[in-house]
Every structure is written in C-alpha cells, then in structure tokens.
Amino acid sequence: MTVLAEGTGTFLQPDPDAHRRYIRDNKEKGLVSKVMSEAEAVKRFVDDGDYVAYDCNLWVRGPAALMREIVRQKKRELWIAAKFTAHDATMLVAAGCVNRIDVGWMEVGRVITEAQAAGDVQLFEWSNGAMTYRLLAGSLGVPFLPLRYLGGTDVFKTGTKLIEDPYTGNPINVVPALNPDVALVHVNQCDEYGNARIFGAGLQPVETAMAAKKVIISTEEIVSTDEIRKDPQKTRIPYYAVDAVVHVPFGGYPGTVPGLYKAHLEHLMESGAAQMQGKMDEYLDKWVHSVSSNEEMLEKHVGQEKLAVLKAEETIKEGYYE
C-alpha cells in the first residue's frame, strides 16, 4: 500500500493485539456488582500518565463528578481527548492533571493559553469528528479506518496518512485507532453490573466505552437488572465492558442532563469568572478540595432547594423519560 503523505505529529499509537490481550486478561466477564464510590473508582482505574477519553462535556451530560474526583486525587500527566469539550480541559489543566490534549473543539481561555505558553501542556489538533472516528476504530478492534476528510489541511499533520486506496486507486485518508486507557461516561440509568442506558442525542458514549481498556460509568440512577432485561434494546453499553459503576445523582452538574435537570448557569459564570480573574485555585478549592464527594459538594455549595429548581426547570421530558 502506497503512503502518499503523512502527518508526523504525536498521537497514541494503536496496538489492537495488545488491547485484545488486555481485555482477555483484565476484564471481569462474570456478573459481579461493580458499584463503588467515585473515590474508589478513580483510585483503582485512573493512573498517572493514562490517556483519558470521556463522552460529552461539563455543559451536557458529561462525567463531571468523575472529573472532579480526578482533580481531587491529583492525578498527573493525563492525556485527554478534548472533542466537543467545554471547560473540562480548562479545569483539568488548571488542576495540573493534564499535560497533553488531543483537540477537536474545546473552550479555551487563559488557563490553557498560559499553560501552553509555559510548556506545561501540549496540544495536538484533530477535529471532533476525527477523534470520534478514531474511537470508533478503537471500538472495532482495527488499527485504523479510512475517512474522507482532514486531507490537505494543517489538521492532517498530526497523525493522518494519505494512502492509495487499494480498491479504487484513489487517494484516501486513514486515521489511527484510539484505544484510551480510561473511558469516563455519565449515563442516565445503569444496573449494578454496568448495563447502561443513555437517553438523548449524544456524542460517542458507546465508542468511547468500547474502545477503552478501563471503563468508569457514573449514573444518575441505579436500576435493577430485571428492569434492564425487560427492555434490552435500551442497553447501550453492556456490563462486561464496565469496570466501575458509580451512583452519582447530579453527576453531570454543573452541566445539564437532558430530560432530567438544567445546567446551573450561575456556576458556569463562576467558573468562567474564576478563569478570567486567575482564581482557578480558589474555584477548585471550593468545588473540589473542600469536599470529599459529589454528594457533599451539592449539599454544601448548591443545596437541595437549587437542585430541585434545576430539575423542575428541565421541562422537556419527551424522548428521555416519556
């Protein structure tokens, strides 16, 4: 196969056989409860230096509680897939957790700009679709997939190759599969084994989970396995892919979980202001380090009354819970 052009940047190298061996040797295939606290899940399944991919973001059904736990446990030198990312990357960089970011789209302000200038974080440019497609390749167990974009642009230079299509003879781009060390996915419902339901349009929860070595699911609600088995079509991620099930109501806070609660705009304004004013340390102290869990954070800094309002204001239920 002729390589016509290739990017020479840095990317996580695909190794499908190593991934298969990891799955063979490490995944729990039995029906075993995986319910644990966010502290235990992150302690057991996120290691310094890991490549972390997550579905959605801090504004929409993202694994916000798990990200805060990563900050709380001071994980270091993580490499993240920032596709369709809000200020998630900002929070993780401000906390010193992340030093490499594959970019699709992310909210960028002074935290990332200054960290990049100081050499504390490296950015590698892809696109939302390309990152999602790399995860698809990872979830299929193949080393790469062809795609018909990225070519000709500066984004190509990171890790895409232009080859001669062995079937048509035309030029075609290929991108490397992405098999993250860890996937974080926040879901609507999940049973104790990890059978997970996700409601609404949504980025790549399935690809992200299936491509990863270790999978942490945070869930708004734990449902019985009996309920799962009565409506199996709704299961998007099967239990054997899942290593930890963390029950975290409002685990997407301050973002919205569509159909369940609204985003907390005052909080988002507070985090935005903290970045503008160079006060991310204070923000992280308040929202992460001064508390030991999501539950305590909600109790101390948000309050049941406000949470009830955020739930009541999310009036659209159609398609999610109706």
Binding site: T132, A201, G259, E314, G319
Partner: peptide, 25 residues
C-alpha cells in the same frame, strides 16, 4: 450546548456524532 434538550427537541432522530458524519460522507 447548555440547553441540549431544547436544541434536539422533537427531532426526527437522535443519533450520535459518527452517524451524522456517515450521512455527510
């Protein structure tokens, strides 16, 4: 993004990022 349920209200279909990419392709 923040009002995701509003943005995807009464859609013909809720899919995911790869799927709409396939449709464009």
């Amino acid at each position: 993004l923040i009002e995701a349920s509003g943005g995807s209200y009464r859609a013909a279909s809720w899919t995911d990022m790869n799927t709409v990419g396939f449709h464009a392709g």
